[in-house]
């Protein structure tokens, strides 16, 4: 503090003493930040929303191609296509392919896939083959019938994992887990057979 005060005093005093000496240089302006966040269309054509919060408050942006500056909250404004293309065209082109999900269904009580779902095995393997460094998650689910559904869900997920591996899946990682009856697609009471709930969800990223 003392040093600071002396320095400040020095700056203030020197011109008085030497009269017409060069005035102290103005403080360097902080570098101007060109910074903004812009909302883009979702894959289905809808737009979600983003918010920007700083010391001045929060600004919400909920229309496609609307932006908010990040250097001092401003009202949202529209960004033209040329600017978007210049600032983000290459990045949007470099975006990895969106992940794909496949639902496979089972006969009651075991790990036997329905006939329709067996045909998906080859599709999953083909989808993964088109992606660079595909990683896969396999999540098993059951209906509410029976009382060992965590185990059954895992057995189903393992069965599917084995089938896609056997069909030549190439992946950097495959995770195999069970949600048992905790994540029902169709809400039912306990002890209810529901084909839609007897499923394995495979996600290919």
């Amino acid at each position: 503090m003392t040093l600071m005060r002396n320095l400040l005093m020095g700056v203030m005093v020197v011109p008085l003493v030497v009269g017409c000496a060069t005035p102290p240089p103005p403080p360097a302006p902080s570098p101007k930040l060109v910074a903004y966040a812009v909302l883009l269309d979702n894959a289905d054509g809808s737009a979600g929303a983003i918010t920007f919060t700083d010391a001045n408050g929060t600004v919400a942006v909920n229309r496609s191609k609307n932006a908010v500056n990040l250097d001092g909250a401003t009202a949202p404004y529209t960004v033209d296509d040329n600017t978007l293309q210049k600032d983000f065209g290459a990045i949007i082109a470099a975006r990895p392919q969106a992940p794909a999900s496949f639902l496979l269904y089972f006969e009651s009580g075991g790990t036997q896939l329905t006939a329709e779902s067996q045909a998906l095995i080859a599709k999953i393997v083909a989808d993964a083959a088109k992606r660079p460094a595909a990683d896969i998650s396999v999540i098993g689910h059951t209906d509410t019938e029976g009382d060992a559904n965590e185990k059954l869900g895992l057995q189903r997920a393992q069965a599917v994992s084995g089938l896609i591996a056997g069909a030549g899946l190439k992946a950097v990682e495959t995770t195999v887990t069970s949600h048992g009856e905790r994540d029902l697609l169709v809400k039912t009471p306990d002890n209810t057979a529901e084909p839609e709930n007897r499923r394995v969800e495979v996600t290919v990223r």
């Binding site: 101007k32 060109v34 910074a35 812009v38 979702n42 737009a47 929303a49 983003i50 919060t53 700083d54």
Partner: peptide, 19 residues
């Protein structure tokens, strides 16, 4: 560097360029 962006399920882009 100047604040926080919150995301409400969406596709968005950010540019931060000191000049």
């Amino acid at each position: 560097p100047t604040g926080t962006i919150g995301v409400r399920g969406t596709n968005f882009a950010v540019k931060i360029e000191p000049q």
